[in-house]
């Protein structure tokens, strides 16, 4: 049925949240700390969204090439010549912590 999406409320009631969707694990992959409340809420909401996305499985894509973008260009290059870049002080102006013209980062190697 075209545009069943507009009747999404009906479709939702038949969906169950994805059993293999582990919000805590994915948030770790994304380097995103979540509160327990967020974990629970986002897990339920994204379970619904993933349920909705399942509809793509109806489509036969066996003979279809993927589209990464719609621009009619490939391999855009430019001459490899040195040009002025952002001045050091401009590059550092928004740094949360800086020193001697450098970004200060937490200790990585013991």
């Amino acid at each position: 049925m075209p545009f069943s999406a507009l009747h999404f409320g009906d479709a939702l009631s038949t969906l169950t949240s994805m059993s293999d969707f582990n919000v805590k694990y994915v948030a770790h992959l994304a380097r995103l700390s979540l509160t327990p409340e967020e974990e629970q809420k986002f897990g339920a909401q994204l379970g619904q969204v993933l349920g909705y996305i399942e509809k793509l499985k109806e489509v036969d894509v066996s003979q279809v090439e993927p589209t990464a973008h719609a621009v009619p260009l490939v391999n855009v290059t430019r001459p490899d010549v040195v040009r002025p870049s952002l001045p050091n002080e401009d590059a550092l102006r928004n740094a949360p912590l800086k020193s001697n013209g450098l970004f200060v980062v937490p200790k990585i190697v013991e």
Binding site: V26, A27, A30, S33, F42, Q45
Partner: peptide, 24 residues
């Protein structure tokens, strides 16, 4: 932990939801 805490504190709920969905 710095990354996670920064992003957890800095992003709002919809941005977090979309990052999680996109990562998944």
């Amino acid at each position: 932990e710095l990354y996670s805490k920064t992003r957890g504190a800095g992003f709002g709920p919809e941005v977090k939801r979309r990052i999680i969905l996109g990562t998944y």
